[in-house]
Amino acid sequence: MRLPQPRGPLSATLVETLRRSQDGVQPGPDDARTADVLHDHDLQLSLWMCYELHYRGFDDVDDTWEWSPDLISWRRRLEDRFLAGLRALAPTPAVAPEAVPDALADLVAADDGPSLAGYLQREATLEQFREFVALRSVYHLKEADPHSWAIPRLEGRAKAALVEIQADEYGGGRVERMHSELFRDVMRALDLDDTYGHYVDRAPAVTLAVTNTISLFGLNRNLTGALVGHLAAFEMTSSLPNRRYGNGLRRLGGDERATRFYDEHVEADAVHEQIAAHDLCGTYAKAHPDAAGDVLFGAAACLAVEAEFAGALLDRWGLGLSALHTSALERTA
């Protein structure tokens, strides 16, 4: 994977800097800002590039940039803006540690985000489903990896619970059952390029924000509570949408291999829901009472960002437009 096309002054300066050998050069200005950080293309792409250095990196970037003090400092300033935006979007009340599992269930029950899954099940065209899958590939081709940052930070029952969930995500050691590999089957069935990171240049800011939220929580140890809360919300809201995604793809002609990714999540995430809420988050909150609010914040942030993602796709499709991002060059062609 090579560096993506910039979308503004932040990402342009970052791309230019990362193409050099590391020599202590500051990445550049960070004063460009918008009120809505989730839809800020320049901010989200810049953060995604910074975070990707900790995953697989880029073919045209020196690997030593991963821990450049200048780059980490610059990233931190972007993260402060992103985190402030997430906290404003997903305010959460104080809660007693022992009440965390019930509070998570209440958050999920109160979630009234737009039903992207219902639209894909009943109304989406084949091209719209292809766009959905292409955009989701930004996360699903590294599914589980961001949440795995929490494993070395947990202990006891909470650690065992997370490992149990992640073992299923990674296919129990069988490559063909890894969820990221099952998603590749979906992409191939829809004639999409399943190369890691291929659709980043076509991903709107809010699509990048979905993955950036997990990376933000995962790469900052002080946000471990938010990371496990995010995973819990992700698992607790997964089974029904995935059933609808699978049925939608079958409606459009998808066979058993094409829909296996979604069918697998219907069963697995129904089990993961209880493990994540009680064994993982409940145990973690009791061991770290001061982080109980962080757990709920992570869950609320997950629901809020996913709702923004769903709304963005439905808005574009409702206008008869593609949900994929178009570059400035394409818009002026």
Score class of each variant (00 low, 15 high):
V266T: 08
S239H: 02
L313Q: 10
A203R: 01
H39N: 00
R77T: 14
P289N: 00
A160C: 11
S46H: 02
I72C: 02
S322V: 00
H278Q: 06
Q274W: 12
D63L: 11
P152W: 09
D294V: 04
Y139M: 13
A84G: 14
A134D: 02
L45T: 05
E164R: 14
L126K: 05
M1T: 08
V138R: 04
E155L: 11
D111I: 00
D102F: 11
A94W: 15
E330A: 14
R174N: 14
V133T: 13
V175D: 03
A232P: 05
A323Q: 02
F234H: 06
A203K: 04
E52Y: 01
G85E: 05
N212S: 05
A292M: 13
A124L: 07
G24C: 14
I72S: 08
E306L: 08
T34S: 12
P289T: 01
L141I: 02
A307T: 11
T13W: 10
A310R: 00
L303I: 04
A203W: 07
S115W: 09
L329G: 06
E308T: 06
A277R: 03
H41S: 10
W149H: 03
P289W: 01
H325T: 02
Y170R: 06
E164I: 06
V305L: 12
D102S: 15
G253A: 02
Y119P: 00
L313R: 09
G156E: 02
G28P: 14
R20A: 15
A291Y: 04
F261A: 05
V163P: 11
L154C: 00
G311H: 10
L303R: 08
P9H: 14
G173M: 11
F132N: 00
A103I: 09
A203I: 05
G113R: 01
E264K: 10
V138I: 07
D168W: 06
R7L: 05
R87E: 06
P101I: 13
V95M: 09
A160L: 14
E127K: 04
E235C: 07
F297M: 12
D112Q: 12
E98T: 09
N222D: 15
Y170L: 04
R157A: 14
R56P: 12
L280Q: 10
L227Q: 06
L14A: 03
M178S: 15
W48H: 11
Q121P: 07
G218N: 13
L78W: 10
R251C: 01
R20S: 13
D185I: 10
G85N: 03
V271G: 06
E16V: 05
D31Y: 15
G118M: 08
A292E: 12
E155A: 15
G320R: 00
P146H: 03
L141W: 03
L329F: 09
F129T: 09
Y196H: 09
D269H: 02
H54R: 10
Y139Q: 11
A144K: 01
R157C: 11
R2G: 07
L89S: 10
R202W: 03
E143Q: 03
H278E: 11
G28S: 13
R33H: 13
L208F: 08
A94Q: 14
E169Q: 03
L249G: 00
E267Q: 11
D255E: 07
D194P: 01
A144C: 00
F217V: 03
A307W: 04
E176H: 06
